[in-house]
C-alpha cells in the first residue's frame, strides 16, 4: 500500500469536513441521511457521466463509463467506476466509513468517503494508469492499486 500523505502518487490529502468550511455545506444535507447504503441495491449507470450531471443514490453506484470533471456522484454505499474518474465522488454519504471508491483510473477533483474529504493536489503529476481503490484507514483516506502483486483484493 502506498502512503498518500502528503506526497502520494496522486497526492490526495485528507481532512475532516469540519476544517473545510467551504465544503461542509455541500456534504451536510447528504450526511443527514440515515441509511448505511452499502447493503442497498446498487445503481448501474451504463454511460459516461458528463459535466453537470449528478447521480444520487442510497446504495452503491456502478458506472460503466467515465465520470467527467464537473459530474457528481453521491452514494450511500461504494462507488465503482469502470472508466476514468475525474469528477467529484462521495461514497458512504450517510456516514459509512467502510465505503470504497474504485476506478480504472482514479483522478477525482475531490473524493469524499463518509465524513472525510480528500482533494486532488493543486499541481502535480497525473496518477499512474492503474486501477485504484480509495478507502478510510486510520482516520485518513488512503489510495492503493487494486492490482496488487500478491493478487489479493485490498481490504480495510
Amino acid at each position: 500500500m502506498r502512503n498518500p500523505f502528503p506526497t502520494a502518487g496522486n497526492g490526495l490529502t485528507a481532512r475532516e469536513t469540519a476544517v473545510c468550511p467551504g465544503v461542509t455545506t455541500v456534504s451536510h444535507a447528504v450526511l443527514e441521511r440515515k441509511t448505511d447504503g452499502a447493503s442497498r441495491d446498487a445503481l448501474y449507470v451504463r454511460r459516461t457521466l458528463r459535466a453537470g450531471q449528478r447521480v444520487d443514490h442510497d446504495g452503491s453506484v456502478v458506472v460503466f463509463g467515465d465520470v467527467n470533471a464537473g459530474a457528481e456522484i453521491v452514494a450511500g454505499g461504494d462507488v465503482l467506476v469502470f472508466g476514468h474518474l475525474r469528477g467529484v465522488v462521495h461514497a458512504g454519504a450517510a456516514g459509512a466509513e467502510t465505503a470504497r471508491v474504485c476506478a480504472w483510473r482514479l483522478e477525482p477533483v475531490q473524493l469524499r468517503i463518509g465524513r472525510m474529504i480528500a482533494r486532488s493536489p493543486d499541481r502535480g503529476e497525473a496518477p499512474a494508469f492503474a486501477p485504484e481503490v480509495a478507502r478510510i484507514e486510520g482516520g485518513q483516506v488512503v489510495i492503493e492499486r487494486a492490482d496488487r502483486e500478491d493478487g489479493r483484493v485490498p481490504r480495510g
Partner: peptide
C-alpha cells in the same frame, strides 16, 4: 471542453 461536455450531456 468542460462546457462542451455539459452540452453533449444535454444533447444526449
Amino acid at each position: 471542453v468542460r462546457d462542451a461536455d455539459r452540452i453533449i450531456g444535454l444533447l444526449e
